[in-house]
Computed example of a mutant assay.
Amino acid sequence: MVNELQRIISAFVQILFIILLPSIWWFLTVRGKVPFIEWIGLKSIKRVKDSDLISWIIGGFLLFTIFYMFIFPLTRSIETATSAFSGMGYKALPSILIYSILQTSLPEELLFRGFLLKRMANHMPFVFANTIQAFAFGLLHGVLFASVVSLEVTFFIIFFTGAIAAYLGFVNEKKAGGSILTSWIIHALANILSGLVAAFSLL
């Protein structure tokens, strides 16, 4: 219970830190015109039928899964975020859910698809804005592993996570009416999977 509480507190600190810059940006530019929650993309999903939405979510989850299947053997001996769950089985489930939903996917979606992509897309064609946010997302994840994996693996991580980020950005803006809830769901499901794989030593 203590571990889960610490994770929840850590998650909210991260979220507050992540939304600090967007909050200031919103306050100085569009305060009074659009609510912050809507401006950052935390709004209802529109423009897509339930069946289509499920297909897009499954597609994104499969992309993450394929990436994980490729990257896991290359990073098996490296300490990662999910290493804390290794061999814990069902006992790790509460921590995995907190980690997946609040600690990682929500802050990253708020920053990359909620803030960065949306602000850039207001000033340049969507394809350029989406490519930039995707590259930034991929670069962040590549840098995290750069010191412990080969250059080739680092480039693989940057490319594949960048491709996933581009997919998430496209789904949010072109299929879900600008809502980041879709990418948050996909991202969280993928992280839950990686946590469960570690907890039950499935690979």
Rank of each mutant, 00 (worst) to 15 (best):
L144C: 09
I24N: 11
A199K: 05
G177M: 05
I58F: 09
S183M: 03
L181M: 15
L53K: 02
G177V: 02
T82L: 05
Y99N: 12
E109R: 04
I57Q: 03
V149G: 00
N172K: 04
G32M: 08
I180W: 02
G60K: 08
N122Y: 11
S10W: 06
F170W: 14
S51M: 10
N130Y: 06
G138F: 00
T80A: 13
S23Y: 14
W184L: 09
F12R: 05
S10F: 15
H123Q: 12
V13I: 14
F159T: 14
I78H: 06
T104P: 04
I98H: 03
Y167T: 04
L97T: 10
L168T: 06
L116S: 06
R113Y: 09
I9F: 10
G138C: 08
V148W: 03
S194Q: 14
I8F: 14
E4D: 15
F12G: 03
A81Y: 05
W56L: 15
F159M: 13
F128T: 02
E79H: 10
V127P: 05
I18T: 00
L93M: 13
Y90N: 11
W56Y: 14
F126G: 02
L117Y: 02
I18N: 00
I132C: 09
S44L: 08
F27E: 10
G87Y: 06
G32D: 08
G59K: 06
F155Q: 00
I58T: 11
G162Y: 07
S194L: 11
G59C: 11
A129W: 04
I18C: 04
